[in-house]
Every structure is written in C-alpha cells, then in structure tokens.
Design a protein around this nucleic acid. Structure first.
Lengths: 160, 160
DNA sequence: ATAAATGCAAAGACTTTGCAGCGGC
DNA sequence: GCCGCTGCAAAGTCTTTGCATTTAT
C-alpha cells in the first residue's frame, strides 16, 4: 500500500521497452498487459501456464482476473509476442517469443523444461517434409527424457 | 441396412484377434471394447478423437456412451494398446499402437495427418539428449506443413 | 470524452466420475 | 451368480464470453 513511486527511473525504463512492444502489436498499454509481459519476460522458467501467471500477479498484489490473463495471452499470441504450447497433458503453457527458434526437452520425472536447437535436425526435417510432398511451415519437437541432476530429482513432483 | 452376416469368417477372425488383444491387456471382452478397437484398427485416418469414435459408433447403431468411449480409450492407453496425442489445439486424438514408431506431419490447411520415420533424425535426437545430460525416454516430433495435393485442399476445413 | 480493456460470473468444450443396472465368464 | 462394465447424468478442468465499470489516450 505504501512505496508508490520508488526507483521511478528503472521502473520507467522497463515499462517503456515493454510499452513499445505492446504499441507495435497494436495493443493499448494497460497495467495488466504490461505486468503480464514483465512476468513472461523475467520468468526463470520460460514456460508458464495461465494459472501460474495469474498466481504471480496475485503475489504482486495486482488485482487482475484470470479471464484477463487468458484474454491478454491470446492477444499476445495473435500478435506474435508469445507462443502457446500444449506438450502432453492438455494444459497450455506460454513463453515469450525471443526471435530465436528452439525445441524442448521435458524431464518426465520433474517436469522441468529445457530448450535446445540442432541445425542438423532442422535441416533433416525440411528434407523429410519435401520428400513427402509437403511444404514445411513449422514444427514442434519435444524430447521426453530423464534428467539426471541433483537439482532435478524425481522427488519433486512439481517444481515452480 | 441389409447384408447382416456376409463374410462371417473374416468378421469372426478379426473379432478373435482383437479379443486376444483385450485379454492380454487384462480387460474383459465386451462389445464396446471390441467395437472401439475395431474402429481404431480399421480407421482410414489413423488418428481419431473420442468424439469421432463416438460418432462412428452411433453410425454403426451401437448404443455406447461417450463416457464409455473415454473410459475405454484410457484403459487402452494404460494397457499400451493405443497412444494419446495432443498435437496443438487441446483436443486429444488416439491411434493404435502397431509397434512401429513414427512421427507426424500435420497439414495446417486441412488437418490431415501423415506418418513418417527418419532414422537420422531419431539418432540425432538421442545425441542431443545425451549432450544435454538427459536420458531420452520418448519424443514427439510434429511437422506442420502445407500439403499440395488435390485430395487435400484448403477449402475443406475439417475432413472426417 | 470515447472507445477499448477489465473483472466478475456465467457459459462452453473436453474429459472424468458416481451410481444403478446389464453382461461376460 | 459374481464382479466387472456400461450408460446416464452430474461434476471437474481449463478456457472463453457477456456485460457493466474502469482506464488509456
């Protein structure tokens, strides 16, 4: 409730960058949109569900409804700002579009997602599509695997 | 509407084979299960949604509920008889497990799905996983493309 | 000031579950 | 005849939509 305008400068700069993204997308610069964009841009986990974003907003004491989160994410997707993935499981997750293409490895034990790119695989995909008489438009490659790491044990059912 | 019991022999043989599949899976051989298995085994499109299977059952004048379709499909999945995919779009589709692994090309214009395999890609996937410190368990590769064919035009929004 | 964006709650799409009756073994 | 399976309908998730109010420009 206090601390209204501290560190105005930095806050302003961040907002400014994101505001431009929104303007470019033809979207009015509103608090919910800026906040959601910030969350997506700074999330440690690159992939967030609508619910997860909603919770983060609540944590920040933002009074933004879940419906708005979905609406905004859909708009962002249409604007090309974010991508929506379904992986296996029915629940959609969203991630910022940073221009760089990449595929995903999902740990079947802890659900952690990592990203990667492999030029050779990319090329082979185009080749396969050609061979089958298709013109490749896009693709989704998800590797399901066990990540053998300390910070990613099977005990943790769902890491945040 | 006519032609009730023609080619009994073949029909019998098919049923028999499928019954064994069910028994092996530890499932009682019931009409709904056999019917659903038949539909999955003989579908021209390899991938069917629960709804699609349900409609086919209705077409065959079988009085089987949608709930049962879902239940049976879930059991089949648990038994390893079928696989469930989500592709992009949230609606699950099911396909028979024929032992052979393959990946998918989905036409973004008409939704038609084709299958393929590519040894080189498979190998590269394992290599990538290794490199990242993962033990590859499974994967999903979906190519989204435009199929330039007469029988697959963009006009048909949803082919059955 | 005005048109667009939001919040709430209600509806929607897909899937699962509870319970009484039917059916395979 | 027994236990499991089915159908129906109701409940559950995740997501979208309608409408009055709020907000950015």
């Amino acid at each position: 409730m206090t601390g209204q305008a501290r560190r105005v400068t930095r806050h302003f700069r961040n907002s400014h960058v994101e505001s431009q993204d929104l303007r470019r997308a033809g979207l009015k610069v509103t608090l919910p949109r800026v906040k959601i964009l910030e969350i997506l841009a700074s999330a440690s986990a690159h992939h967030l569900s609508a619910e997860a974003i909603y919770k983060k907003l609540l944590d920040s004491n933002e009074d933004i409804g879940l419906a708005t989160v979905y609406r905004v994410l859909t708009q962002f997707e249409a604007a090309g700002l974010v991508s929506r993935h379904h992986f296996e499981g029915g629940m959609a997750v969203f991630e910022m579009n940073r221009g760089d293409h990449h595929d995903h490895v999902v740990c079947v034990d802890c659900g952690k997602v990592e990203e990667f790119t492999d030029e050779s695989i990319e090329k082979l995909q185009s080749a396969v599509a050609e061979r089958l008489g298709f013109a490749l438009a896009d693709h989704a490659l998800i590797l399901y695997a066990h990540c053998r790491r300390e910070n990613c044990p099977s005990r943790k059912t769902r890491g945040a």
